[in-house]
Amino acid sequence: MTEAITYAYAVARDADGSLEEVLPGLPGVGDASVHLVRVEPDDDVVVAVSAVPEQDFQEAALRAHLEDLDWLESVARAHNHVIDALAAHTTVLPLRLATVYLDDERVRLMLQTRREAFAGRLTALAAQVEWGVKIYVEAPERAASPADLPAEAGLSPGRAYLSHRRAQRHAREDVYRGASQAAERIESAARVHAVDRVQHRPQQGELAGGPGENVINDAYLVPLQHAQSFRADVLQAGEGFPGVRVEVTGPWAPYSFATPADVESMKRVVP
């Protein structure tokens, strides 16, 4: 029989006990049933958890799984689905993907130790959502070989090639200059609505999520009443820059703002 450990999705506030009504039929990782862990039966700060096979989340196995994009996508979808279901009803602090404990009791002890910090962060994030803002640069393609370039009057193929490369370099510089200007305008527009900002590392490869080079990858914390105005103003601020594409995603649970400043990052595996 496969041993089970506890997978933790998020810390949440359950002031009136209504989250219990959300859980029936809510599938977690591996379609496991999700339940809540509390320090005391009437405590309003809870952790949403489910059971997962220990063999899949041991350190060596987990490292291997994280290289398996199909497995990783399946876990990430389930993880985010649980968080989104909770966030539709209350304030949540999403935990990192693949945060696991040996059992529910270990989760309860963690919550008991950090409850005050979690409660303070839940209060601070109430009625606020996260928006993601990414800026992409779609720079001109690299120059073709001299033989593939059209002839320019009075220029040898070599000089034509150098002229083409020079023009291309200037065009590329113009695009990046436009991206910098767009970033300044977007930040200014975002500040009108947002109460906090986190600057993430630009994404590369498959994580970039679209054509072009991701040069800005920011997250903003925005009060619910400003959510749609934030999106509209940011998109408008990013208009008019050739070769620059702005992507606004959300609203999300406050993933980038969840961890209290005085609490160390959650470990993926707690012995």
Rank of each mutant, 00 (worst) to 15 (best):
A60D: 15
A60I: 13
A60Q: 14
L62I: 13
E67L: 03
D68G: 02
D68V: 02
L69W: 00
D70A: 09
D70I: 02
L72Y: 10
E73D: 11
E73S: 11
S74V: 00
A76F: 01
A78F: 01
A78P: 09
H79E: 04
H79P: 08
N80I: 04
V82T: 07
L86A: 07
A87W: 09
A88T: 05
A88E: 14
A88F: 00
A88H: 06
T91F: 01
T91Q: 10
A98P: 02
D104F: 02
D104S: 13
R106C: 04
R106L: 07
V107F: 05
R108K: 14
M110W: 11
Q112A: 15
Q112N: 10
T113F: 00
T113R: 13
E116P: 00
F118C: 11
A119D: 12
T123C: 01
Q128R: 15
Q128A: 11
E130A: 08
W131I: 08
V133I: 03
V133E: 01
E138M: 13
A139H: 00
R142M: 04
S145V: 12
S145W: 08
A147N: 07
L149A: 08
P150K: 09
A153E: 15
P157M: 13
A160S: 15
A160Y: 05
Y161N: 08
Y161V: 03
S163D: 08
R166N: 09
A167V: 00
